[in-house]
Design a protein around this nucleic acid. Structure first.
Lengths: 349, 349
DNA sequence: CTGTTAGCGCGTTCAA
DNA sequence: TTGAACGCGCTAACAG
């Protein structure tokens, strides 16, 4: 409802040449031009050249909406991330975009801000935009979301998780196993008093799986994670800092602090420095994701390297493959890698 | 060209109810349903209720492509960033997405990887997708890009820069003035021997403006930036680290190192720590952008806080306003803020 | 291999 | 205030 309709911006007023214009210019039928665009192989080179020239001359750009309507494919792929304002998903996003762009697809993106309801809203929006396929992060969400994408027969893929079962196609790694791996690294060095700084587990199944992985590894040694030493916090450096301070204020102090995400660990490391605690002599700290400062922040953070870019690229490739009608094998879990640096060592005494 | 056409994924096979279906279900004409969707005010409440019920019952989702084709507006807004895999633009991206989503628009996004040609390709792609408006970062780019968006009459806005003149609508801040401000802060404390670690100035006008700002401030005091002490590097912590080491290897050492981006400064600070250089006693370090670790990394980084989220939100609002046909004033530059922390102090002696 | 003919689902005139 | 008719620009059958 524009206040002043007369000044309404005229979108696409001079929208440029149409396919028919190109056909006329080239002296062929519209169908031939269409074929040059969508199936160049089946058109005589001579004609194709004339059409290409006409396209060039008129600076023709195909009209996406018209194409979508006629072909029933939008060439749009959607992706909903829990957050865009964090370096965590940036690599996945960039790799996904790069991958699908090379096949002529365009990426539409949204952030759910870790709120399930938002994800659902954005999905509706994207469905209305006519996305051909969808990438999501994590597996745990309202059933309504899966119902929605099931109804519309939109191919989709879950990232950052490995399929717990075969329910959904996943391109990711086993968060639980990865968390168990860092924990075992600590256990192997002799640690027995553990603490954990975890992301919110309520709407984040990756955080929940990591917490579960730590618990599982401890149980193998007959240990448990003290609830009083399990801090659940929103992701952030300052949150990690504050959590570590609390953890260290309570005797007996943990000798190992497992963080569910690198930013927590950065905060923990910095707070140790402030408190004058020697890392790893007095306390070992581990992170998760091997983000950009983990190698540089002294004494170097022991962490799990997660295949962030690979997930984006493979998710893209997987969806493209389905859209191309190829028989596509359900993807298998990706590898993570334990990166041992200076922040972990045997407990003192 | 699917290998096996028979297994081609049927996009939108069961695409769901159409507007006509809704009309029949509600016992009204398609036109009325359309009005309920686009101009609910002018339809009798009683009818509107029936239509709403039918929409609900059939779980109707409007077909974006058909709407675009008929209305000549796609409800898509495009954004091209130099990089998506960096925390730098994340806030802007997220804020932009949030802003336009609230008005029913969907964001399509791409990364140019700091390559001008990529930007141009993605723009063509987006134009073909029918974007109604466009957000770009920076002002310096190939003329062909501006020609393209001019031809199609696509409203656009430049971010992360303040309009050098009135050529383009910009939502950003004055990079040059901001860089000059940090430099003056250093000059005021008595520094006279400067070095700079800068981003690549060739295809990044923000980096170039920051470098120019430093130079300008120095010139006010009759000083110049020694080319041998001006390091141009790709953004990154390790790059900052290496650059600082080189800088300090050359006598006389600078007493102040101005970094064109926070990651450089993080690296510089960490390297100072490695080298045993006291900050700020032996050398002052400044950053740019006030990213997430700047407050936490000891001794706290003096830097410029840039309005990252605000730029995204305002850019979105500006574009929406134009799309709504409102008379929209050309935006004016946003404020930056000098954040003084522990990494700067008077030079020793 | 190429041209002809029909729509795709919706917004938007008009007239009623 | 509502309905009928038309066409947006393109792809996909078909026939030639």
């Amino acid at each position: 409802m524009p206040t002043d309709p007369d000044h309404t911006f005229k979108a696409g007023k001079t929208s440029g040449a149409t396919l028919d214009d190109v056909a006329q210019e080239a002296g062929v039928s519209p169908a031939t031009v269409s074929r040059c665009l969508n199936n160049p192989g089946i058109v005589r080179p001579q004609l194709k050249a004339k059409v290409d020239a006409a396209i060039e001359k008129l600076d023709y750009v195909p009209h996406g909406a018209a194409r979508s309507l006629a072909s029933r494919r939008s060439r749009l792929i959607g992706a909903i991330f829990p957050s865009l304002d964090s370096t965590l998903f940036g690599g996945t996003l960039e790799a996904l975009q790069c991958e699908i762009a090379s096949a002529g697809y365009t990426l539409v993106v949204a952030s759910s801000s870790y709120e399930p309801q938002q994800e659902c809203n954005h999905l509706r929006n994207m469905l209305a935009s006519g996305i051909d396929a969808l990438m999501l992060v994590g597996a745990a969400r309202e059933a309504s979301v899966y119902r929605l994408i099931g109804q519309r027969h939109v191919p989709y893929v879950l990232t950052w998780v490995a399929g717990p079962d075969g329910t959904h196609p996943c391109i990711g790694f086993d968060n639980r196993a990865a968390a168990a791996a860092v924990t075992r690294h600590l256990l192997d060095m002799g640690h027995r008093r553990f603490a954990m700084i975890s992301g919110g587990t309520a709407t984040n199944d990756r955080a929940a799986a990591r917490l579960a992985g730590v618990r599982a590894a401890l149980e193998e040694h007959g240990l448990t994670l003290d609830p009083a030493r399990t801090m659940e916090r929103p992701f952030g450096v300052e949150e990690g800092r504050a959590a570590l301070r609390q953890l260290m204020a309570r005797e007996p102090r943990p000798t190992a602090v497992v963080c569910g995400a690198d930013p927590f660990a950065y905060g923990a490391l910095l707070e140790c420095q402030s408190l004058g605690l020697k890392v790893p002599d007095e306390v070992s700290v581990t992170g998760f994701d091997d983000m950009w400062l983990s190698a540089s922040l002294p004494p170097g953070l022991t962490t799990v390297r997660t295949p962030r870019k690979q997930m984006g690229a493979l998710a893209g490739r997987y969806l493209l493959s389905i859209l191309a009608g190829k028989e596509t094998a359900p993807p298998s879990p990706l590898d993570f890698e334990l990166i041992v640096r200076g922040s972990t060592g045997p407990p003192s005494r």
